[in-house]
Write a protein that binds this DNA or RNA. Structure first.
Length: 418
RNA sequence: GGGGAGGUUCCCGAGUGGCCAAAGGGGGCAGACUGUAAAUCUGUUGCAAUAGCUUCGAAGGUUCGAAUCCUUCUCUCCCCA
């Protein structure tokens, strides 16, 4: 099998392919142009979005040419796949803004070059060809190839049919297929990859190219990554695990990976890191407590890829300090723990524990803080807070800061300023 | 356009005049147990705080008193066209 495909297969990226053998043969012959769609509906991607791009990375390494297609046009419509509700519609300005920040994030795993140096990836926006589309022409040239009966048999539409599906959403498949056709015509793109929820749309695109151009393109989908605990990949109680450090701090990001379920570690190492498979196989042998080493490596590698080595080092150190020295009061590097600033003078006057906690991200409200303290979950500088009447003043300060802890894992720093 | 059913606290979902800040489940948070795991058990889960305040799509109204009754508006879903 072709090297790139083999890598994808070995790392668990392949779920379905329209014609694996033929694709294999095509890739053997030389570099293949392929694309993956991204939705610019938010300003930041989250880890769940990254699967196709890690796959893209491996493809690019093997010499194939990636196109990241921003769905500027399609996101103005909303894809029903896997959604129970219609998506919000965005303005062009918002989309463009999102697209540029997403591009930066993809840059962590993909090598872009808008000048199209050989093999470098490009980012295109389907608004460029969808925006000025003529409705009548589109219906005549493209619409005629689609059968409503057939579309209704697609799982993604079936589900939505029960709850209601607006006409514009129903058109999503046509537009995505048209994307493929356009990329084939203009760029010579022959392969579309995406999450398995996109299977229907991808197949439709392959068929459209076949009908219009009598040529064969291919589709490849990745498994929808799930977690062993049944939760959605990349989601926490507080929201998605965003790649943007403003929305999700590198420390928390590190912690997210550090805390994955045992059963997921190997799978994630394969998909979300670039470690050689032999090394991963070694880590896979770890059991029980030992498996924590594999989790640390996963967290470190992943953080390094997304946030850079420096942040990864900091997060790892901070985690070590926070967890391994619990109780001893020794903290090595607190830098990576999120913080808030409070004037020293204010603290010197004394602040009630509940008020202090309520000012951090640890507690949303004072009631929240009260609960925490009452239940014995509040710890400051490794001293357990005994009750809600405790007043925190400068005698608690250690090295110009206060390290607040809620429960066992959540930390927050209060940095004292003059 | 006609007819019908609905909008309850993070989610699902009870609740038809006072005993409702609102059952139950999920989720979250905290505690115990642990490996910063899973599973399990316990507590907790509007704001504030010993009073009190603001919630049950929105705005009015009836009443000593409404999530529960009336009016208007609004949104969603279903059936017919």
């Amino acid at each position: 099998m072709n090297k790139a495909l083999q890598v994808l297969k070995d790392r668990g990226f392949i779920k379905q392919c329209t014609d694996l053998e033929a694709l294999d043969a095509l890739m053997e012959k030389g570099p293949v142009k392929f694309y993956v769609g991204v939705d610019p509906t938010g300003s930041s991607l989250h880890v769940g979005h990254m699967v196709p791009f890690f796959a893209m990375h491996h493809m690019q390494e093997a010499g194939h040419n990636p196109i990241a297609l921003v769905g500027g046009g399609t996101s103005m419509i909303g894809d029903p796949s896997g959604k129970t509700e219609m998506r919000k519609m965005l303005t062009i300005d918002q989309i463009n803004e999102n697209a540029s920040s997403i591009r930066g994030q993809l840059g962590t795993v993909i090598d872009f070059d808008e000048n199209r140096e050989s093999g470098k990836a490009v980012m295109l926006n389907n608004y460029d060809w969808l925006g000025g589309l003529n409705y009548l022409e589109f219906l005549r040239d493209i619409g005629k190839h689609f059968s409503v009966n057939r579309m209704l048999t697609f799982e993604s539409y079936k589900q939505r049919l029960e709850r209601g599906l607006s006409f514009i959403e129903f058109n999503y498949q046509l537009l995505q297929s048209y994307d493929f056709l356009t990329l084939f015509r203009d760029e010579g793109c022959r392969l579309q990859m995406g999450g398995d929820d996109q299977w229907g749309n991808i197949v439709a695109g392959v068929e459209l190219v076949r009908r219009c151009e009598r040529d064969e393109c291919y589709g490849l989908t990745f498994p929808l990554v799930s977690r062993a605990d049944g939760k959605k990949m990349g989601k926490t109680e507080k929201g998605a695990v965003f790649l943007s450090p403003e929305l999700f701090s590198p420390y928390e990001f590190f912690q997210y990976w550090r805390n994955v379920a045992d059963a997921d570690v190997v799978k994630f190492l394969k998909m979300f890191t670039f470690l050689p498979l032999e090394e991963i196989d070694e880590l896979a042998k770890l059991e029980d407590q030992e498996i924590n080493r594999a989790k640390e490596i996963l967290a470190y590698e992943q953080t390094k890829i997304i946030h850079g080595k420096e942040e990864a080092d900091k997060a790892r150190e901070a985690a070590k300090a926070a967890f391994s020295n619990q109780g001893s009061g020794v903290a090595i590097d607190r830098e990576a723990i999120p913080s808030v600033e409070i004037p020293m003078s204010e603290l010197a006057a004394g602040i009630n524990v509940m008020d202090l906690y309520a000012r951090t991200e640890l507690c949303k409200t004072k009631s929240d803080a009260r609960r925490l303290v009452v239940q014995g979950g509040a710890t400051i500088e490794n001293k357990k807070v005994s009750g809600i009447d405790v007043t925190i003043d400068d005698s608690w300060v250690n090295d110009g800061e206060l390290l607040l802890r809620a429960g066992k894992k959540r930390y927050f720093r209060v940095v004292l300023t003059d």
